[in-house]
Design a protein around this nucleic acid. Structure first.
Lengths: 195, 195
DNA sequence: TTGCGCGGTGAACTCTCGTTCAGTTATGAT
DNA sequence: ATCATAACTGAACGAGAGTTCACCGCGCAA
């Protein structure tokens, strides 16, 4: 059996273990995970995995899996580039959606969208927005704002007259808040999950 | 200092540790993480965290953090329901986007959308689709299909005459594949990340 | 004030974990 | 076929892990 194939198989075992247990297996567990009989074999394998960027160790030698191992999706190119062959799939590094989408975990929330005020921006009712609380919005950021005692999504636009909130839907007109403008947060991502 | 507040602070420390190290801290590390002087204090705290569903143990007592601790986003209600008070935020359980969006990690890929064939379904150029390879598409699933030697997104529709691929854009007409229809995978989610 | 319980200290202990070393077997290139 | 190197076995070791136990002190209610 070729060397690289065996390695990939073992990495696959580690992925499965991680998904089930949410932790790094101890040597004893890796023994029967890989079919080894000696802990030193595990030791050697881990050294290779470290070289290839699947695991790290802290200053005291404690191990942790990296996203290359724990990731749930592989990042490929564009759709036009075509669908990947199995080899290309293997080559593509895995990543986690959390790392990809969330910068400030403690301030980020998922909210379900109601209403069609941002339809023209591709945000449909039922979609989920990732909202970061706290930062002051930049020009044309989409924000969660209180308008007429009701929370909605709007573009945040600063102009000569102050701040105005623009919908992305021709049915509605923009709004210029009278006094206090309450901003819940800034939309960092939109997620639509099918079925 | 009230009991629950201290607990929340400590949970927060654990979250930070997890984000940095991607593993469960050992007792010694928790000692100065929490400012304890005795390992038994850590032992007691972990028992509480287990009762409250933040950590699990396997049959041999090995610990793992649960999504309630490792999660990056909190799932709130709808936007119309308003923005949460700090107490409501605390009450909302954290979750990971990976668990939320990906069912079959080994078969799921991220692809960047090129072209406007699905614009009316809220899928814009530059968006990212999560594609699951393998499953046979259900009626009106969005699929990655090869059309005229080029990969695109289309609705998959089975009708009396066989299979047809429908765009979500009035500019284009549906397509009925002559012989072989190549399906790359089924779109399970759409993601749009700002800036 | 007394008594109780929670939350903590400190020390002792056991056992498992990761590492090391010497030696053996398998693998793949020449 | 030969040989160097990588992969693995088996045993031994030492450190560090988590657990347990005895005890303490503070807040709080009776």
């Amino acid at each position: 059996m070729p060397r690289d194939m065996r390695l990939q198989e073992r990495i696959q075992k580690l992925r499965e273990f991680w998904r089930q247990e949410r932790r790094v297996p101890v040597y004893a567990e890796m023994l029967d995970l890989f079919g080894y009989k000696s802990k030193n074999a595990v030791f050697g394998l881990l050294k290779r995995l470290e070289e290839e960027g699947y695991v790290t160790r802290d200053s005291k030698g404690r191990m942790a899996f990296l996203p290359k191992l724990t990731g749930t999706v592989r990042l490929l190119g564009s759709i036009a580039a075509g669908f990947p062959t199995p080899e290309e799939e293997q080559a593509a590094d895995a990543t986690t959606l959390d790392d990809y989408l969330v910068r400030n975990p403690d301030r980020t929330f998922m909210l379900t969208v109601r209403g069609d005020s941002m339809m023209d921006a591709g945000i449909l009712p039922g979609d989920i927005v990732l909202v970061e609380k706290g930062p002051s919005p930049a020009q044309r950021d989409i924000v969660v704002a209180r308008v007429d005692d009701e929370w909605t999504l709007k573009y945040y636009v600063r102009d000569a007259a102050g701040v105005r909130l623009e919908p992305a839907n021709r049915k509605y007109r923009f709004i210029r808040p009278r006094q206090s403008l309450e901003i819940g947060g800034v939309v960092r991502a939109v997620i639509r999950k099918y079925a």
